[in-house]
Design a protein around this nucleic acid. Structure first.
Lengths: 239, 239
DNA sequence: CGCCCGCATTGACGTGGCTCAACCCGAGGG
DNA sequence: CCCTCGGGTTGAGCCACGTCAATGCGGGCG
């Protein structure tokens, strides 16, 4: 099932017609990218919106001296750069972490597709607002949580996001991130990232092996992380 | 002059009719808030979009144990919570820093006002995208820059944003933030915030006295901060 | 089969920024 | 005119996290 449809169902109940539109979207020609390659570079003029169908990608920004910060992960069912074509230049890059398959959608196509589907349009708005809220939570994460809490928080977030597009398997989910990528996300060094992961393992909070993350007790990990899932707005609206 | 109009002019050329709409917006009944009071609390159902007419406010998030992170500043001409009424609950609060005067705009009113003003609508999109990009830059700031660079960066950002709504006076701008508020923004302690400000003063990069910030050499401060204004997207589109 | 190479792991040691506590200062109010 | 109070400033000591460098290790490839 279309991961975007699956995600939007967390927010609102879609009609069959809505789902058909999303399937049309996912049926556009796929583009694929190899792991660790750039999909969009900083400074390029933005052309289109993208919908990730499979694989993990990330947005990142760099400082002139080479320091890199990952500013967001893009998972299957996530949109990138909705409406960004309004701007003249990308101010952050998008890179594939694993092999990625996505479709590109022009503003016009998207407009035509959603024209008679107000729920879908609301759903896209919701997606945008959640993305923005994730950024705020990351700001809180980097500013206030210590490295253990911060790491645990990121694990919780990604696990929940994967779960809601059906990519978790019980307490397990895929975990393609290297410790370097984790470090660039968490604002700590790779050495320290490793020590923090060891600590989480020692405490029995995570099992991380063979690119698979297992969280035996999600509630416990969430407590350590001071994780409150509200910011992901996954409860369906009443309407 | 309407600060929002002034800001949007950095992005696109507005028609007289566009400006009239913005003046109608600013002519809605004003609400005022005393310094250091909450305007919206976390958890409340969002009702309206807000446009700040004067004063400074901030968005913040708190951890259960009381740690606080400021996740954005809202200056005159800034919008808050455009489209947020889609969500069920606010996940961050909005607080007045100085005395604040704002107007509340319902989704319907806003829709009606922009209906025949596509440029304005594009302008609001631009505003939203810039706000989101500021969040990404803050993530980079907190994750990668050290406390001196980080502080300098925030000073640069706020100065430039004030300048573009006409609130800077040459190299000077108002500076209502306490060191506690700065610390909660920068993710460092108040003691360290103080030391960093002293360092910037000693280096002659800033003069900060009587709630007024003077930046004698903006380029120099920007170099220290690794500040690149691109992310604010202030260059007007060609069209 | 053995070599490489990218990633993970670990230890020793350095340091940026924290904590805590004291002290200063100016503004406002009784 | 003094007292209070909310900032701002500063020092001493500590700790979380960084740096650097070495070591392990699994998997792909010649």
């Amino acid at each position: 099932m279309n991961p975007l449809a699956r995600k939007l169902e967390h927010f609102t109940r879609l009609t069959a017609a809505d789902k058909a539109v999303l399937d049309d979207l996912a049926a556009l020609p796929h583009r694929t990218y190899a792991p660790h390659t750039d999909i969009v570079r900083e400074g390029e003029p933005p052309r289109v919106m993208r919908l990730i169908l499979s694989g993990w990608a990330c947005h990142y920004k760099m400082l002139e001296d080479g320091r890199r910060q990952i500013v967001g992960f893009v998972l299957p069912g996530d949109l990138c750069d909705l409406n960004v074509p309004i701007l003249r230049a990308m101010d952050h890059a998008l890179a594939a972490i694993t092999a990625v398959s996505l479709v590109e959608v022009s503003t016009d196509t998207l407009g035509a597709m959603t024209l008679n589907h107000p729920r879908l349009l609301r759903g896209l708005w919701w997606e945008t607002l959640v993305r923005e809220e994730i950024l705020r939570e990351w700001t809180l994460n980097l500013g206030q949580r210590d490295s253990l809490e911060r790491t645990a928080h990121l694990l919780c977030e990604l696990f929940v996001r994967l779960e809601c597009v059906g990519l978790a398997d019980g307490p397990k989910c895929p975990w393609p991130l290297t410790q370097t990528e984790l470090a660039d996300t968490l604002g700590i060094s790779t050495a320290h990232t490793n020590r923090v992961l060891q600590e989480l393992r020692t405490r029995g909070l995570i099992i991380l092996r063979n690119r698979t993350l297992t969280i035996p007790d999600l509630k416990a990990l969430q407590r350590v992380a001071l994780f409150n899932p509200n910011y992901l707005h996954l409860e369906r609206e009443v309407a």
